[in-house]
Design a protein around this nucleic acid. Structure first.
Lengths: 340, 340
DNA sequence: CTTATGTCTGCAAACGATTGCGGTAACGTT
DNA sequence: AACGTTACCGCAATCGTTTGCAGACATAAG
């Protein structure tokens, strides 16, 4: 893999590299015919500028890193499409790393990006606690960073989020108004901040309608996979708890629990209504289709990209928080809950 | 974002940059105490080598690009995990680009990788026809390339594949032996080579059991999305064709068609058995669970990574073709087909 | 004819890291 | 005392590109 350099062009035309460079850069200090000859030669020789060299010169790589917590759902890929659409237009490349819900891998990815000398990083975190020192170090080194969806807690950073609390409050409220009285909440891991926010929404919705909040039996902590959801279903049915609805932290968990409940003979939604948060296209391919809170993923990506552009252009700019509006999608899994 | 360079270390210790470089490189021509002082200073100042500079020096980026056709199923992300696991171990970074089943975007991605000066590219193609000139150009420029799953046709390149023809033959055979007589094939786009191979498997399986091959009504060409699958179901039921089974090009199509068939009142698998190829985890979250041919995705990624490593180390090495063994997973969607 | 002005081009330094070569000590050998 | 050896370190070139500065040349103005 040998590359043609401006040196080759210079030799080819018997002129200096500076003139070639200037011709290529459209500097007005080159005669029109010279420029044309250079352009022609570049075309003939198949010249491609070596970005590595210019990066070295200017100290930036025109690359933004994106670190996503998982890629088994299309959540991340949709956000990334949004990010790409605005960044590509600004001549910025995007590289993606997937943490697989593992904070250690997230840290590796962070180091990778750093080592890669990206101009900025867009992150959705696995854990809002785990790699705090690294994030603080990077922030203090003035590396532009933007967070979306899974944000840190207690760090003042640019971020794009949905209103986890209010949306989960409303969703649970709808279930209550639809006649469900014993709603189980499958809570996500403690170290995801959205998890505690959504759990808070659930609790307050219950409180508003004077339904007792029973943390011991009606709130179950789980992981993030389909399998984790299925295990919750086993436990739920096994323990003989009475319940007529499930509100899950994510669609992955909801799908896991819903499928297993059906296998265990529960009718969805007649006996148990199911709803979740962070729905993707997956919510529409399961049976029955899943009621979920659907963030505008493309838009989230676009906003995140805009924020990182701001930060790159001016590292001292204020840290904005963009709240985008997630839609509650009522589908079959939650039964005949009346529409708004 | 200011970086500490070896120059800073040199200045800090009042020695020359060469000595610093040598100390960092573990060259034996530096006194032990000097090396220790340098290491210490590097730690204190927070030195991180600038890869851009060394890349410029050595002409490689220690980066491999991966271009995948889509990311809404976990197919690609699993393969990528395999790729990463071996490449990271060799100190090579991985950057991913998603073509969204659009050949134009695939070409952009290709150019992106080129511009990025990656040391090699691992590709799964959208179309085996569309960007041929670009691939040929890159190949002739000796850029190491490896293909997996969605490979080109008529190009001699290193590749990792499954036996599309045989596996789809066997799967259709199982459906026939299970009593299905009128099997519809949902064929993928013409410009995906796997599509024609799988269609061939379908046809030959029919032929073996003397079932007439009716290309006009029993073979339907479709796109690649859930929605495309659903439309096929509409057309199938709308036209009143008799059929008792569907064999789809991918699980995405199969899921689309299966769900819509159920909505239209067909019982799966009693009235219509459904099976597909290229199954991912998605096959297990739909209802009923989908029978599918499941390639060993992680292994495919690992093999692809090994092949690209070979090519990078020795561009002249022969182009190997690795055939990995896909497992046929019999699940509920295909009904009581007898197991092997 | 001299000077000013403008247009074009080349030299060389710079970005950060590596490395061949040459220089400088210290030390040992004869 | 002269020389060789060894260990250590710095100069400068290199990778590909950009750019300030200065030189060259031409043309116009005086």
């Amino acid at each position: 893999m040998k590359h043609v350099t401006i040196k080759d062009i210079a030799r080819y035309l018997s002129i200096s590299v500076s003139t070639v460079s200037r011709a290529l850069m459209d500097d007005r200090n080159v005669r029109k015919e010279t420029r044309e000859k250079v352009l022609e030669a570049a075309r003939i020789l198949g010249y491609k500028p070596n970005p590595v060299a210019t990066n070295l010169k200017y100290g930036h790589t025109n690359t933004v890193g994106v670190i996503v917590p998982e890629m088994v759902t299309p959540f991340a890929s949709t956000v990334i499409n949004g990010i790409r659409s605005v960044l590509y237009g600004n001549g910025i490349k995007v590289i993606v790393a997937d943490s697989g819900e593992d904070p250690d891998r997230e840290r590796e990815n962070l180091r990778l990006m750093e080592h890669f000398m990206v101009d900025g990083i867009i992150v959705s975190m696995c854990s809002y606690k785990k790699n705090k020192e690294d994030y603080i170090r990077l922030l203090e080194a003035d590396l532009p960073m933007v967070f979306y969806d899974r944000i840190p807690h207690g760090l003042e950073v640019p971020q794009v989020i949905v209103d986890d609390y209010r949306k989960s409050f409303f969703l649970v409220e709808k279930m209550i108004l639809g006649g469900r009285k014993r709603i189980v909440h499958i809570q996500g891991p403690d170290d995801i901040y959205n998890s505690v926010e959504r759990a808070r929404g659930y609790r307050d919705a219950l409180a508003k309608y004077k339904i007792p909040y029973d943390e011991g039996t009606m709130v179950i902590k789980a992981g993030m996979t389909f399998e984790a959801g299925a295990e919750v279903a086993d436990r739920l049915v096994g323990s003989g708890i009475q319940f007529d609805a499930v509100f899950a932290f994510t669609d992955t968990l909801a799908i896991g629990v819903m499928n297993r409940l059906r296998e265990l003979g529960k009718k969805i939604p007649e006996e148990v209504a199911v709803a979740s948060f962070s729905g993707t296209e997956l919510s529409t391919i399961v049976y029955p289709k899943l009621t979920t809170v659907e963030p505008p993923l493309l838009q989230m990506g676009e906003k995140a990209a805009e924020l990182i552009l701001e930060k790159i252009k001016n590292p001292a700019c204020p840290n904005r928080t963009e709240v985008v509006n997630a839609e509650i999608r009522m589908r079959e899994s939650s039964g005949n809950i009346r529409p708004e």
